[in-house]
């Protein structure tokens, strides 16, 4: 798993471009190599202690059952995992989370890509203003944006007023009170908050593209769309891969929007699987063994999806 994941780094393609002398550093002797390891030590140690060790303990926990804090090993050991198979709510929240993933991530990345491309136009004026406006949502804290969105999507709120004003709907929509519309509001919320963030990455990627390749395509008579598709996009691939993996990871672990925006409702139908994990731990009768088992399933899904994305990303090389 770990070695597969190494290429998450978008740059392995560039390794050959490294000056030949670069390789020479590590061969200069054990002492220098040791210095390198010492440089990594604080970061690696912290991740080990703050992430991997608790995760290992969570694994032990996932094999336990019991009421409250009185936990003992389950019989059979995989009881909590077995329980998950029969848990309708778990499957529903997992399906909902995957739905968010499948709909929101592609839309967001395409939007971000289009916006980045527009902003990259050298003739565009007030670039800083546009970029700021579109990025600013991700500086806002989650509680605040949840509140603003809840007010805007209220039954007698702004969104309904505008839609009825434009004669698009006859009667106000109860946005957060129905399954599909509540899921829609979560997706809109995610798009609002994260499109700008991804756009900045694409913008950065675009600025690194060799402009002469684009000029060359133009000379060959390719139009703007074709140039974008055949020249710009392939060069952005490492960046797209990076944002795709980050967004997938973020969406599978989605908690805040589900918790703050819709509170998972109505009837659990907009709840994300991470939010369900929290419910199981802190709202319902606490079942930490089961919650830990759910977290392992989330971990495996994220890792699998990352691996798939990397495979697909590599193939197109």
């Amino acid at each position: 798993m770990s070695t597969q994941l190494t290429p998450v780094v978008p740059a392995p393609d560039h390794q050959d471009e490294r000056p030949p002398s670069g390789r020479g550093f590590s061969s200069l002797g054990g002492r220098r190599s040791l210095t390198g390891w010492v440089f990594l030590l604080p970061a690696a140690l912290l991740i080990l202690v703050m992430n991997f060790w608790p995760m290992f303990q969570a694994f032990i926990l996932s094999l336990q059952t019991g009421r409250g804090a009185q936990l003992s090993f389950a019989e059979p050991l995989w009881f909590n995992y077995q329980r998950m198979l029969a848990d309708q709510t778990f499957w529903m929240t997992l399906r909902t989370t995957l739905l968010y993933l499948v709909i929101q991530v592609p839309i967001m990345l395409v939007l971000a890509l289009v916006l980045a491309n527009i902003l990259n136009n050298p003739r565009l004026r007030f670039k800083g203003m546009w970029r700021t406006a579109i990025f600013l949502p991700c500086a806002v804290s989650l509680v605040s944006y949840a509140l603003v969105f809840r007010t805007m999507f209220a039954t007698d709120g702004l969104v309904n007023d505008v839609l009825t004003g434009m004669n698009l709907i006859d009667s106000p929509i109860n946005w957060l009170g129905q399954t599909q519309t509540a899921q829609f509001v979560i997706i809109i919320g995610l798009l609002w908050r994260w499109t700008g963030y991804n756009m900045v990455f694409y913008l950065a990627g675009l600025q690194n593209i060799d402009h002469s390749t684009i000029e060359a395509a133009k000379v060959d008579g390719a139009n703007a769309v074709k140039t974008f598709w055949y020249v710009t996009l392939p060069q952005l691939k490492p960046m797209i891969l990076l944002t795709a993996i980050m967004s997938t990871n973020g969406t599978i672990q989605l908690f805040d929007e589900s918790y703050n925006l819709t509170a998972g409702g109505p009837a659990y139908t907009s709840m994300s699987v991470s939010h369900y994990l929290y419910e199981v731990s802190f709202v319902q009768n606490p079942n930490f063994g089961y919650a830990a088992a759910i977290s392992y399933v989330i971990l495996v899904i994220v890792a699998l999806l990352a691996a798939i994305q990397l495979k697909v990303g590599d193939k197109r090389d």
């Binding site: 509140l147 809840r150 007010t151 999507f153 209220a154 039954t155 007698d156 709120g157 109860n174 946005w175 957060l176 009170g177 509170a263």
Partner: peptide, 18 residues
């Protein structure tokens, strides 16, 4: 009984005489 979305909106219905 009119159904609304959230607690804030519920409070709003009577505070705003709806």
């Amino acid at each position: 009984l009119v159904e609304v979305n959230s607690w804030d909106e519920y409070i709003g219905t009577f505070v705003n005489s709806n």
